[in-house]
Design a binder for these strands. Structure first.
Lengths: 165, 165
DNA sequence: TATTGTTATACTCTATAACTATA
DNA sequence: TATAGTTATAGAGTATAACAATA
């Protein structure tokens, strides 16, 4: 259990990560913003899946997922087919064009990352990854146990417990 | 220099941090969203300063800073006074009311963080903080050296080199 | 009735560009 | 002419709620 001072520092660091994400997002072409890229990446990594599963991996609401998916589907980067076993569901799969797009994106994105972190030793990158993964786990686990405090607007029992990517 | 696989993993982790930030942001009262809270926090931490300095610490454009500042100023949480030495500038300072508000926010925010990370040893929190700080440094340093790639819409020479909080 | 997904609406955060006022 | 800051506008991302189709 760390000191409050450390949590303050962590809060500062977390709130400042935005600048990095925006920096990386700027490497993406205008027709494929970050949300769309994430959809392509997850479908490539995990294979075909349904909306609900994708929403879980993205860790956002399904309504948001639906919009991202519509965007990439309109451009032919993914295919949506009805699930024969449950006609409410749609199965999402990366198309060859989507695969090409993803390769192109990843190349630019990862080269930028490499460029910025070229002087980082392997182990540091590894360590950062695993600490971030663990951070997400810790947050996922305590999702229901939100601090109840003095101010009223509290959405008490949190919705579904996402367990993202 | 790490392997591409590691950068892919880091990219995944970075893109998934959003869920944590949103989780923490939900602890804030509606009248003081994250942007406003960040302004209060930085003025408390660094003392009075001008807009341009605050924009640098927030690592966002000054136009964005201006709006956040207007929001907290309207509520009496900060005071804006003209700089007598340069009447274009305005000096921003936390008011007592702003200090109270910040204390209230921080309490909720940090208790949530503590709750989620209660099983983390000190050193892990420390390590995560310093890796994140270093990540921001690495990105700040390579800000001008963006990868030039196949797609045209490249805002070549990046704007000012922010060196945030 | 419950679940899967879509759409409408609203809000936050951000950047670019045009503008005002000082320097 | 250049700089500090503001405002107008536009775009991305998100959530909530109402809805349609299916289970």
């Amino acid at each position: 259990m760390a000191a409050r001072r450390q949590y303050e520092e962590l809060a500062r660091q977390l709130s400042a990560i935005g600048v990095i994400k925006r920096s990386l997002a700027r490497t993406l072409p205008p027709e494929c913003p970050a949300g769309s890229a994430a959809v392509l990446r997850l479908l490539d990594q995990h294979g075909a899946m349904r909306m609900s599963r994708l929403a879980e991996l993205l860790a956002v609401d399904m309504s948001v997922t639906s919009r991202h998916v519509a965007h990439v589907a309109e451009r032919g980067w993914i295919a949506r087919t009805r699930d024969p076993d449950d006609k409410r569901s749609r199965i999402l799969a990366l198309t060859p064009e989507g695969g090409d797009k993803l390769a192109e994106l990843s190349d630019r994105y990862l080269r930028t990352l490499e460029g910025c972190l070229e002087d980082w030793p392997d182990e540091e990158v590894e360590r950062l990854c695993s600490l971030l993964a663990r951070l997400r786990e810790s947050f996922g686990d305590c999702r229901t146990a939100t601090v109840r405090g003095p101010h009223p607007a509290q959405h008490s029992p949190q919705p579904a417990t996402h367990t993202p990517a």
